[in-house]
Amino acid sequence: MIAATKTSANSAFHKYWVILSTRTQEDMAYRANYVFGAIFRFLPLVTMIFLWWAVYNGRKESGASPLIGGMTYEDMVVYNTLMYVARGFSSVPGTMSDISKDIKDGLLNRYLIKPINYLWYQVMYRLAHKLVFWYIALLTFPPIFLLMRNYFSHWPTLWEWAVFVVSLFIAFSIGMLFCSMVGMLAFWFLEISGFLFVVMMLEFFMSGQLIPLNILPVYLHRFLFYAPFGYEGYWPCMILMGKVPQDQLVPVLLVGFLWVAVFYGLSRWMWNMGLKRYSAVGG
């Protein structure tokens, strides 16, 4: 909080940087925890790959087509791997529970008296987490992608790379805003920790992390294509794999930005309403 004493104009930004960088230091102090986290993060990928292999194998034995939802086995492996990159941006673990806890236990007061915006503080805090994640991911992802190089059947164009990068920004924004909103429900409900699992599960399913959205029954995937959650996983993956037709790239992004805007507005509104309630109850 040293930075909070500075008053110059650009210290407003500096303040967040200090919060951000101290967070990172705190995380790095526990080295082993991070290394294990980074390695074991890939375990579910392993099970998924083997399960898909068994499924494709079952199809081969019965003489069915080797494509599922227009994807070969190799595509499926690539999809599930890229999902890690996408979720690396869009998942912000702990945000929901931390915010709800701060509200429930009255810890919000600690932040309200400081010259910082609580929600921006949360964003910085999570970015710090992400920084460490990516710091370590930079060591783990390249060998994995190198190992799988033969699985990539499509090398993205420059345009697809650009769209992909923008979609990752959307992914983080939607993930962060959504989790904050869910966390803020604690303004109205005393104990929401159980509810958080529902949300996490919905995210897991609707982002396409469990199954690529286009394999789901038609009525489901038509709906999920327009829902915000696809931007947390499905869309970034499909964009980079070249599975999104060229003329749809921009519309996909536009819908994403629309969701970011809607979520931003909603979260501001919730914060204002919630704070009124919070101070009325006395914290």
Partner: peptide, 15 residues
Amino acid sequence: WIGRSNNLMELYWQF
């Protein structure tokens, strides 16, 4: 031994 292991706890879901 390692000071913090909440990431290790996540192993449950992953294993």
